[in-house]
């Protein structure tokens, strides 16, 4: 484990709209922090140290180090006509990196999200494209296709959904998926993961959707149902840390995104929440 390479990253620590003066006591990479609001958001670390703050994508972001770059862009966050959904928080007893990797995986849909995001016998994962985009230093998977009985709250009946996945930061990932009411646009669903410790995280999903029909409550419930199903997996994987070296786990062709993610983490020494052979 090394905290060093990941310490200068931005991490989500709360929903901005839900902050109050009383503040929220939470934790970031083992350090107790307090997130409060006095006009803007304020984050205080150990010994009253003021931490850098950004408010973006519905959430408050902070860092224990000195961020060398701006928070990653999501252009769709400024697109008119989208609804922005602060889904809330799900605490998961797993490595923050495992939470991200699960989000990048489609092969589990028929078994974990049965009759919602997948259903037997439609289990096959077709070949898709994966790359590390050097200019932006992000992992991308494109041309990912999967049959889904109910791809979104706004979908009626089964459709083959197309996905693009993007890992924008070690614990933040963005998913672009077929938008049933607007075939020319992508719905955006993100997973922002707050690493509390190496083996405990708060997961903050956020969405930017074209859907004027579904109530906010139903949109939130849909996403929470999905993520609670994921939690039952994430809390029962052994080891709890994500193994970055080959040997502990056996990937197949369907796991190309996770293989690229693990390589990218290792290359940057992003190992907070990871297990290496040397350990």
């Amino acid at each position: 484990m090394s905290i060093q390479a990941m310490i200068d990253e931005w991490y989500p620590v709360g929903i901005f709209a839900q902050l109050d003066e009383a503040g929220r006591n939470t934790m970031l990479m083992g350090e107790p922090i307090v997130v409060t609001k006095d006009g803007n958001a304020r984050v205080t670390g150990r010994n009253g140290r003021s931490l850098p703050v950004k408010v973006r994508y519905g959430h408050v972001w902070t860092s224990l180090g000195e961020p060398k770059k701006d928070l990653f862009p999501i252009p769709e966050a400024d697109q008119p006509g989208r609804r922005f959904v602060d889904v809330g928080v799900v605490r998961v007893r797993c490595s923050p990196l495992r939470a991200v990797e699960n989000f990048l995986d489609i092969a589990h849909f028929p078994f974990v999200h049965t009759d919602i995001l997948g259903a037997e016998p439609h289990t096959e994962v077709q070949n898709y494209k994966v790359e590390i985009r050097e200019d932006v230093d992000e992992v991308w998977a494109t041309q990912v296709k999967f049959y889904q009985p109910q791809a979104a709250k706004s979908a009626s009946g089964g459709i083959t959904t197309e996905y693009m996945y993007r890992v924008a930061a070690p614990t933040c990932t963005v998913l672009y998926k077929t938008c049933p009411p607007r075939p020319t646009e992508w719905d955006v669903i993100t997973l922002f993961v707050q690493p509390l410790t190496e083996e405990l995280c708060d997961v903050w999903p956020w969405m930017a959707l074209f859907d004027d029909e579904t109530s906010m409550t139903d949109l939130i419930h849909f996403q929470q149902t999905i993520f609670l199903q994921d939690r039952s997996i994430l809390e029962n994987q052994i080891p709890r840390l994500l193994p970055l070296d080959p040997g502990m786990e056996i990937p197949t062709r369907a796991d190309m995104t996770s293989i690229a993610y693990r390589r990218w983490l290792k290359r940057h020494n992003y190992t907070y929440g990871a297990q290496l052979v040397a350990q």
């Binding site: 029962n236 994987q237 052994i238």
Partner: peptide, 12 residues
């Protein structure tokens, strides 16, 4: 009690 693919508990 461990699937060699992703370490998931097989008793689930």
């Amino acid at each position: 009690d461990r699937c060699p693919h992703r370490g998931m508990s097989l008793s689930h």
